[in-house]
Write a protein that binds this DNA or RNA. Structure first.
Lengths: 230, 230
DNA sequence: CGATCGCTTGATTCCGATCAACAGGAGTGG
DNA sequence: CCACTCCTGTTGATCGGAATCAAGCGATCG
């Protein structure tokens, strides 16, 4: 359990307000399983697991945010997904090693489940097995949607991203981004400069307003949706 | 069952040589299930299923090739995967509708399985359930790998694509591409012109040789692998 | 107060898209 | 059989959007 520096502790204090602690997207696998989870904390930028490491655990975000990513030899990074409170990640069915890495974006608390226990429960309880399969299927859908995003223009990608983030968390026009511009850039396949410029552009177009760099207010969802090109 | 024109039949006749009819990647769900499959034929460019259509069937490619894709409002198309003989596709766990469309690239024959029958078998047989889950998980890994490809340069994408195609089918240096340049372009997030130019460039660099536009010989796998940047 | 970090903004470059023309092969019809 | 068209792929010229290079700004912290 990492010691938090005052700096990190301060940052962490804003986390609870970022996301509703129990998102609508929460799908408890089963009450039995949920009780098996052990709480665990990771501090900002700490690695939760790395690519090719043994996949012995399944995780569920309680608070904070997590990035899942892959890197090329030369360091280019593609963030495949952000996980927010209520989301589960890290399960590798039929694969004993992780195919991606996962890191804490902010200070994070997760519930950790033993893979072996989860699989054992799945063989006994068909409902759990079904839930796990559906979890993987949802991830697959997300990944396919994200591929479609990666052929869009910069403005379309940023608009899509903002609406996606708004769709998670509390359903208001106030969106708080737990991740840095670099994370957003690596998620959208752009550079930080292009992300920054595009956000500024959307602000000038009165589609959004920025109270701080991490706090966005959606001013014109229709305009954003149009810019999405989906 | 579509009537084949002589032209299409001619094209089809080259199909068997394109891929080994029973690829290594074939994972029969179970002998029980494999017997439930009904053969079905689709002619070139015929739709197998469309986005948002009810997902009542699971498919297994016997011969030919299939493209799975999504489109944006304005027609931009992202091909998420190509399915070759031995590959299964079309299953939507926890979702009664297809999230993507699927079309025959060449004349295709598939085995068709009733979704309800597959799911019923899965509830009875835990091994089948496990296989289905792993199938979805493999697709997810593929999708995550493809996202990583979509941040690469044009040359890196084409080199990756050629090596990927070489890795499927018979393990020789002769690769036959069942799909058009437009399909490749939409798979790699490029234009046909860029794909064509890049292939020409790889040829000039003696990394590959073209006997015809659809037949590529890998001349220098090491060079290709280096260009891959993975 | 100076240093660091995350973000924004500006100037310029460059890769791939776009626009355009053409080539080769296959099928069609005279 | 040959002329014609259609289709697919290649090649060339130019354009444009995002990357790169570079500077500056405002927080937060030591």
């Amino acid at each position: 359990m990492p010691m938090l520096t005052p700096a990190l502790a301060a940052r962490r204090s804003e986390s609870p307000s970022i996301h509703t602690p129990c998102a609508v997207s929460t799908y408890p696998l089963s009450d039995t399983l949920d009780m098996m989870g052990a709480p665990m904390a990771f501090s900002r930028n700490e690695e939760i697991y790395g690519e090719a490491e043994p996949a012995d655990y399944l995780y569920k975000v309680v608070s904070g945010a997590v990035r899942m990513y892959k890197v090329l030899k030369d360091g280019r990074r593609q963030i495949g997904a952000f996980y927010l409170p209520g989301d589960m990640f890290g399960l590798e069915p039929g694969n004993d090693e992780h195919a991606s890495s996962a890191e804490a974006i902010s200070d994070v608390t997760v519930l950790v489940f033993k893979r072996s226990a989860v699989l054992a429960l799945a063989t006994r309880d068909a409902t759990v097995a079904r839930r796990l399969w559906e979890m993987t299927a949802r991830e697959l859908h997300r990944a396919n949607d994200h591929m479609l995003l990666l052929i869009k223009s910069a403005e379309e990608r940023v608009a899509s991203f903002l609406l996606e983030m708004a769709g998670r968390g509390s359903e208001t026009d106030a969106v708080t981004l737990p991740m840095s511009r670099q994370d957003i850039a690596d998620f959208l396949g752009l550079t930080i400069e292009t992300v920054s410029r595009t956000i500024t552009h959307l602000e000038h177009a009165h589609a959004i307003a920025l109270t701080s760099s991490r706090r966005v207010a959606l001013r014109n969802r229709a305009m954003l949706a149009r810019l999405t090109a989906s």
